[in-house]
Design a binder for these strands. Structure first.
Length: 217
DNA sequence: CACCAGGCAAGTA
DNA sequence: TACTTGCATGGT
């Protein structure tokens, strides 16, 4: 089996086990981007509390995030952890949107994908996973998102080396699959779902849809 | 009690 | 370039 067939088989098995994932869980693109920063090394459960706090104070707004006092913002997002660093990162993100696109995400997302990715990576607090999550789940670009689960699962199943970099892992998908945002959207969501359920926690779990595969399949 | 969660930047050698 | 460390809450 070539790499494309292997990856698509993996996708099908996960999809059959878990069904549609409906990612990203956000009401709009800015909420998605804020969530992407807040969920860095943090459980989504805690992020939801922080997002609710931001919504209730009408802070899902680039201008409002720029204007709100730092200390107030930090306290509102406290449940998401790392609140001092993340408050700074949210302000960096909001200032970027205002300065680069006059606060208008339709303008920002009018940029070509490579230029937009580089610009996002220039924001302090936005690394490769956060930038690619924004590109895929807020801007709808066909960019594959790599996270710790992705690296672990592909490594464990022998599809990449354990020492593979972010870009190498990303290329494993993007060089062998169609450039399809809907496919990448669901694929990444299913990897997270699968890892949280079993595969990322321990090897040889009977409940894991990838168990014993592709080695003995 | 320890360990982890949908990372990233900054510091050190 | 290649490691290491700090950041922090809340669930298991």
């Amino acid at each position: 089996m070539d790499m494309e067939a292997i990856l698509m088989r993996m996708y099908e098995k996960m999809s059959e086990s878990f069904g549609p994932q409906h990612w990203w869980p956000a009401e709009g693109p800015l909420e998605m981007m804020v969530g992407a920063v807040l969920t860095q090394n943090t459980s989504w459960r805690n992020v939801e509390k922080a997002i609710e706090g931001l919504k209730s104070r009408r802070l899902i707004d680039a201008g409002a995030l720029c204007r709100v006092p730092f200390e107030e913002l930090a306290q509102v997002i406290r449940p998401a952890g790392y609140y001092n660093i993340k408050a700074r990162r949210l302000k960096n993100l909001a200032e970027f949107i205002v300065q680069r696109a006059a606060g208008d995400l339709d303008v920002l997302f009018g940029e070509e994908t490579p230029a937009l990715r580089e610009a996002l990576l220039g924001i302090k607090g936005v690394g490769p996973e956060t930038a690619d999550s924004i590109l895929l789940y807020a801007a709808g670009r066909p960019v594959f998102v790599v996270d710790a689960y992705t690296h672990r699962i592909l490594g464990r199943h022998g599809l990449i080396s354990e020492e593979a970099t972010y870009d190498e892992t990303q290329s494993c998908f993007m060089d062998h699959l169609p450039q399809d945002a809907a496919l990448y959207n669901e694929f990444h969501a299913l990897i997270v779902r699968t890892a949280k359920t079993s595969c990322g926690k321990r090897p040889n779990c009977a409940a894991c849809p990838l168990d014993g595969w592709p080695a003995d399949d």
